[in-house]
């Protein structure tokens, strides 16, 4: 039997295996024959020393028999990984090419968000300004009322003190209102920030 006959027979006997594995075995046994010949053996002696093709094939198939299941488990794991890598490469390409489109959109979305936050906080600031002016009215009314009693202009003094008391009362209510509004605004902004962050974090994970 020549080396070519042997390798052809081996290839045929191993045809149940994946192509890659067959090539490995053929290369291996081809190298073994060549090395024996180089060592001084004749080709047919080298081949007969390896044993019969049937024995070798039975042994290989016996060795690899438990593996196919392991290989089947492994391969599906590999494939999604490669797919994912491909899609992520495609995503990167899309992101790069779409830059002129998505960047202005992103900036616009961001500025809209910023302006919404600004509007919210200006409302809160306005409320506080009203509150502070109510305090001012209360204090100013009391002081000017006291002055009016001293002058004496009783009716003006009564009116001023009345307004001052009214403002004090309102400011007490107003204070709780302002506090609630500030808390509400802060909560809303924090919630929105979390929501936006979760969008980006989620995308990174996926």
């Amino acid at each position: 039997m020549t080396k070519l006959d042997f390798l052809y027979g081996l290839r045929d006997a191993l045809r149940a295996l994946p192509r890659e594995d067959i090539e490995r075995y053929v290369e291996y046994y081809s190298e073994m024959i060549d090395d024996r010949v180089e060592d001084g053996m004749t080709e047919s002696d080298a081949i007969s020393e390896l044993g019969s093709i049937e024995e070798i094939a039975a042994r290989i198939l016996g060795d690899t028999a438990p593996q196919p299941s392991a290989r089947e488990v492994k391969e599906p794991k590999k494939e999604p990984k490669e797919e994912k890598r491909l899609t992520s490469a495609g995503t990167v390409l899309l992101i790069v090419l779409g830059f002129p489109l998505w960047f202005p959109l992103l900036v616009a979305a961001f500025s809209v968000l910023i302006s919404l936050v600004a509007v919210l906080f200006s409302l809160v600031i306005t409320l506080w300004a009203v509150e502070v002016s109510l305090w001012g009215c209360a204090i100013g009314g009391l002081v000017s009322g006291a002055v009016a009693f001293v002058i004496p202009n009783i009716s003006a003094g009564l009116m001023l003190v009345g307004i001052a008391l009214f403002c004090t009362g309102l400011s007490v209510f107003g204070f709780y209102g302002c506090k609630a509004a500030t808390k509400g605004a802060a909560w809303l902004v924090a919630k929105a920030a979390l929501a936006i962050k979760s969008i980006f974090v989620h995308r990174e994970v996926a």
């Binding site: 291996y28 090395d35 390896l50 060795d63």
Partner: peptide, 23 residues
């Protein structure tokens, strides 16, 4: 080392063949 040489080196001590070495 290479396959055939490994077999030649190991054989005097433990019986080893090509089909044993491959796996």
């Amino acid at each position: 080392s290479y396959g055939y040489k490994i077999i030649k080196d190991v054989k005097p001590y433990v019986d080893i063949s090509e089909s044993t070495l491959y796996p």
